[in-house]
Computed example of a mutant assay.
Amino acid sequence: MRLSTPYYLIDEARMLPAMERIRLVQERSGAKCVLALKCFSSWCAFDFMRQYLVGTTSSSLWETRLGHEKFGGETHGYSVAYADDEIAEVAGYCDKIIFNSLGQLNRLGHHAAGISMGLRLNPGIGHSCSELSNPVCQYSRLGVRAEELPEDIGSRIQGAMIHVNCDNDDLASFCSQLDVIEERFGKLLPHLQWLSFGGGIAFTDEAYPIDDFCRRLREFSQRHSLEIYLEPGEAAVTHSTSLVVKVLDVVENEVPTLVVDAGVETHLLDVLTYGYTPEVDGAEPLARDAKDLGGRAGHVYRICGRTCLAGDHFGNYVFPRPVALGDELRFPNVGGYSMVKKNYFNGIRMPAIYHRNLSGELRLVQQPTYEDFREALTNTHLV
Rank of each mutant, 00 (worst) to 15 (best):
F314L: 02
R356T: 02
R302T: 07
D170I: 04
L61T: 03
D270P: 02
H110R: 10
G233S: 07
G335V: 07
L243T: 07
E148Q: 15
L217A: 06
L149P: 04
Q138K: 10
D169S: 13
G263V: 00
L364N: 11
R120W: 00
D270E: 09
F220A: 02
K96Q: 09
N333Y: 05
E234P: 00
F314M: 03
N253A: 13
S242A: 13
H239W: 05
D281S: 12
V259H: 06
R288S: 11
D372L: 06
C308Y: 11
S240A: 15
E219A: 13
L178H: 07
S176E: 12
G143I: 09
Y82K: 03
E147H: 10
D47R: 07
F46D: 03
T204K: 03
I201A: 02
L24R: 14
D84T: 01
P209H: 02
P351R: 03
H267Q: 09
R216S: 12
K187A: 13
P123D: 12
P123S: 10
Y7F: 13
Y276T: 10
F319G: 10
A207K: 13
A36R: 01
Y276E: 10
G126R: 03
R2V: 12
I157H: 07
A45E: 08
D11P: 05
V250R: 12
R156L: 15
E151P: 01
T238V: 06
S101Y: 01
W43R: 11
G77W: 06
G294N: 11
N165I: 00
E206C: 01
C304F: 00
I22A: 04
V383T: 11
E219S: 09
M15T: 01
G55F: 08
M15Y: 02
L189M: 11
S116D: 11
Q158F: 01
E63M: 08
K246G: 03
H127E: 07
F373D: 08
T64G: 15
H163P: 00
R374M: 11
G114D: 12
L149W: 05
G77I: 03
V244D: 15
K342T: 02
C137V: 14
G326I: 01
Q51H: 14
I201C: 03
S59P: 00
G275Y: 00
H110S: 14
K342Y: 08
D169N: 13
T266K: 08
A113N: 11
S240M: 10
V264L: 09
E361T: 10
R306G: 02
S225L: 05
N253T: 07
R330W: 00
H191K: 14
I348Q: 08
D327M: 06
R107Q: 09
L325F: 15
R306P: 00
G103E: 15
G294M: 04
L226D: 06
R321Y: 11
R330I: 15
E265Y: 08
L142P: 02
G326A: 06
P351D: 07
E265S: 09
R296H: 15
A83Y: 05
N357L: 08
Q104L: 02
S155D: 14
S359G: 15
L16E: 15
M15P: 00
R218V: 07
T75F: 02
A290V: 10
R356G: 04
G92A: 10
S338D: 05
I348N: 09
N106R: 15
T273S: 12
V90W: 05
E131A: 06
A235D: 15
